[in-house]
Structures are given as C-alpha cells and as structure tokens.
C-alpha cells in the first residue's frame, strides 16, 4: 500500500469565532449544542484525521487570542506557516471588533503568502444563523467583498457563509475536502459510468465518518443545488442518534412512491448513495449486487481504501 499522503491544514481566526466547534462537529462527532461546553483553545491543538484510505489531514487548530497570534506571527512564524496546503480562516459575523479582525487576517495572509505561496485559502463567514434570514445574503456579500479586497492577487481565496445550525457547514467543508482528494476526476468518471449502466438518477460518494461528499454522478438533473449538503447534515445527525444506542449506522433503504434511495457502506472509508426513480429498477437485490460490483471495480483501480 502506498504511504499516506499527509496534508497540513491551518485553522485560524479570532478567539470565539467557532473554529473548534466546526472541527469538532465535522471530525469528532459533536452535536451542535455540545459546542457550548468547549473552552478556548490554548496555543495550537494538533489533530490527525484519517480521511479516506490514503489521505491524512493534519489539522492545526490555532487558538485565537491576541497573545498567541503575536507568537505565531513572530517567534513561530516559520513553524506555523511553512508547507501549508490549505488555510481555513474564520470570521465571526457578530464580532464587535471588525477592525482588528481584518488586520489579523491581513497579517495571516501575508505570512501564508510568504511561507506557502501555493496554499489555497478558504474564508468562512461564520455564525450566520445570528443574522436575520432576509438580510443574510446581503450581509454575506458585503463581508465577502471586503475580505476579497483585503487579499493579495497571488493566493486563491474562496468565501463561504456557515453556521453550525444548518447545512451551510457541510457545504463549505465538502468543498474544502473535495479540493484535497486526489484523483477526483478519475473517480467521477467511474461513478458516471456506473450511474449510466445501472440506470440510476444519481450516485453520490461520501466519506463515511464525516459524511462529506467526495464525488458524485448525476444522470437526471435535480433542481435543488444544495441537496448534497442537506443529505450530509441529515445522515450525520442520524449517525449521532445511532451512537446513543451504542451502534453505528450501516445502511438505509427508502422506498417512497416512485423513489428508491439506498445508502450502503462502499469501502472502509466511503459510503454510497444510490437514487433511482425508475420503477423498473425497484428491485433492491439488483441494486445491491450492482453496488457490490462497483465496489470491486474501485478496489481494482485502487482508488479508495
């Protein structure tokens, strides 16, 4: 087996902005409301996350208090900002000190640009649930514009609005991890082929612990562009429910009018969702055997462990 590919991910932003909360929900199975009990992060908390067979993430959750930042930017500058694959910077939309938020952001960007010029940057405008729904879009656009205007031309920066209380969290993080998964193009071409052969409307591949989407193939277009993050959120919530009875979620079959939705573990680290509205395909045994074949095929290609 090939040696694991480890990628360094920096998680930064001011104290209380929600970094640890998000990380705990996505990677450590916290419930949104359990995050109220988290205490401020002191210095850097390192965590090693195994994501898919061969891809390992090294998350550096950097405590956000001003003193720590002085330290990161001065004494530890090289250690922190060297060989960064990805920076996730979090803004608290309700923050009262926008001025210093931005100056810290500018310092971080400068340091990343200097030490890891190839890094990608994702900016999460967080706690959007605290903004009234009718103005969320406008508030976010404004914030996004001022963030992008701060940034240099060299780094690739993308902004998302997030909240731990809805699926926006999964939208942003799916995007982020998707950018880290190698071979997605090949994976998707296999998935597309499979989708066509077995007459599915849609086939989606999830990483099993986070339930983030890593690839999908869509044969019959669907109008809801946010459906994947909704599914991630829904299944993740249910996985937590299963944990309360000391069990893991292994699979689900939904037969609803003309819909059949099948969730099954595909490999050790992935799960597959199969959607079909074709009444001729309503035989679950058939679908299951298709899934088994596809699993074998992926194994042969060595695509995911």
């Amino acid at each position: 087996m090939a040696s694991p590919m480890t990628k360094k991910v920096l998680l930064m932003g001011r104290s209380g902005s929600g970094k640890t909360s998000m990380r705990s929900i996505i990677f450590a199975d916290y419930m949104a409301r359990d995050t109220m009990r988290l205490s401020p992060t002191i210095d850097v908390e390192y965590s090693h996350v195994r994501f898919l067979g061969n891809l390992h993430l090294h998350l550096w959750d950097c405590g956000g208090q001003d003193d720590f930042y002085r330290n990161y930017l001065e004494h530890m500058r090289d250690h922190i900002f060297r060989s960064v694959e990805l920076l996730i910077y979090v803004f608290d939309i309700e923050s009262e000190e926008q001025g210093s938020d931005f100056s810290q952001f500018a310092d971080v960007i400068e340091a990343v640009e200097q030490h890891s010029p190839d890094a990608r940057v994702y900016v999460l405008v967080h706690k959007m649930d605290l903004v009234k729904e009718d103005v969320r879009k406008a508030v976010f656009s404004e914030k996004e514009a001022s963030i992008l205007s701060q940034a240099s031309d060299h780094l690739r920066i993308q902004c998302f609005r997030t909240s731990i209380w809805d699926e926006t969290l999964y939208r942003a993080w799916s995007h982020i991890v998707y950018s880290l998964v190698p071979n997605t193009a090949l994976l998707e071409s296999h998935l597309n082929e499979y989708c066509t052969i077995c007459g599915a409307d849609e086939v989606v591949l999830f990483e099993s612990t986070t339930f983030l989407v890593i690839a999908h193939a869509t044969c019959i277009p669907h109008s809801d562009t946010h459906r994947f993050e909704k599914i991630s959120n829904i299944i993740k919530q249910f996985k937590l429910s299963c944990r309360k009875v000391q069990a893991h979620f292994e699979g689900m079959l939904v037969q609803h009018h003309q819909l059949i939705a099948l969730f099954e573990n595909l490999t050790r680290s992935t799960a597959i969702m199969f959607i079909s509205s074709d009444p001729d395909l309503m035989h679950t045994a058939l679908i299951s055997s298709n899934v088994a074949q596809f699993r074998a095929q992926l194994k042969i290609c060595g695509l995911i462990g």
Partner: peptide, 23 residues
Amino acid sequence: SYELCADAIDVVLDVASIYAPDK
C-alpha cells in the same frame, strides 16, 4: 429506543422530501 425510532422518521422523511418533494 424511542429516540432512535423518532429520529429514524426524520431521516427517512428528510431524504424523501429532497428526492421526491412533490410526493
């Protein structure tokens, strides 16, 4: 068990409402 069964209704209906909304 009650909690699990109640949550199961949610997960099934939520998935169905995305892929078969009109129904």
